[in-house]
């Protein structure tokens, strides 16, 4: 589904990613861990198409397409979803408005008719229930005045509505208490399927107790310095990142 080859990325003149190689197949869950400043967020931003990053070398192929060449909205419509580390507050746009705009953008892209208002409400209300959210959230402005946990749940709600193929979760763990984390993890787990892949970028191993990865990669100084199974995460929790960074 996603093939990253020798990816080099700079911000301004400063190289951040220095040759990332990663293969992700449908149905897999990959965790990308690493200390602060290792380039984790840069990787998720580059995959989602955020401005301000220059790809100086290498390639990213998503379902046979050159991902780097695609506008952010096209990536989203093609099924790449970024759950933000810091979801943006948008006063004046209601959650339900954004959800409908997002869903219709995806449908239109695939030649499907716009969703009927009643069907849409039914769909959204079911997903809201799944994430143990209050329906009132739908009519509030996007993320405005939401707690940290509510914002992260709202990201997963958007994901559940858009039904992407490649879900990138950027530091979904950070700022969540254990109850909020469980709800978010349940939401993610309910969306697992053989057609869908997840990339979880996280500083904390705790998230992986609730969402079991197939592969764990450690990012340091802009490179993947170690890859392994879920047991690698436990090793990291025990030993920290120091032994890998030095390597």
């Amino acid at each position: 589904m996603l093939s990253i080859k020798n990816l080099h990325v700079s911000v301004g003149d400063k190289p951040i990613l220095k040759g990332i190689n990663l293969e992700i197949k449908a149905g897999e869950i990959h965790a990308i861990m690493g200390p602060n400043g290792s380039g984790k967020s840069t990787l998720s931003h580059v995959l989602s198409g955020k401005a301000g990053y220059t790809v100086t070398e290498g390639s990213v192929t998503y379902q046979g397409m050159d991902l780097i060449e695609m506008a952010p909205e096209i990536r989203a419509r093609e099924g790449v979803f970024l759950a933000f580390q810091y979801p943006v507050e948008i006063p004046g746009v209601s959650n339900i408005y954004l959800l409908k705009a997002a869903l219709n953008a995806v449908r239109k892209h695939h030649g499907q008719p716009e969703v009927d208002a009643m069907d849409f409400l039914t769909l959204v209300k079911n997903k809201v229930k799944l994430l143990e959210m209050d329906e009132k959230f739908l009519y509030r402005a996007v993320n405005e005045g939401f707690s940290g946990g509510e914002k992260k749940r709202n990201e997963i709600l958007q994901m559940a509505i858009m039904e992407p193929k490649l879900c990138i979760l950027d530091e979904t763990d950070s700022g969540l208490d254990i109850d909020a984390l469980k709800i978010v993890a349940d939401g993610v787990n309910s969306l697992r399927s053989p057609e869908r892949a997840f990339v979880m970028v996280t500083h904390y191993q705790r998230l992986l107790d609730y969402i079991k990865p197939d592969m764990v990669h450690v990012l340091a100084h802009g490179r993947i310095v170690k890859s392994g199974g879920p047991e690698l995460a436990l090793e990291l929790e025990e030993k920290g990142y120091g032994w890998l960074e030095a390597a």
Partner: peptide, 23 residues
């Protein structure tokens, strides 16, 4: 960018945000 990452094209995103700013 947040709206674009949800599939909304840039022009529509700007129109939504302008509306929202006033709304």
């Amino acid at each position: 960018f947040y709206l674009q990452s949800r599939g909304v094209d840039e022009e529509t995103a700007r129109n939504m945000l302008t509306f929202a700013f006033a709304n």
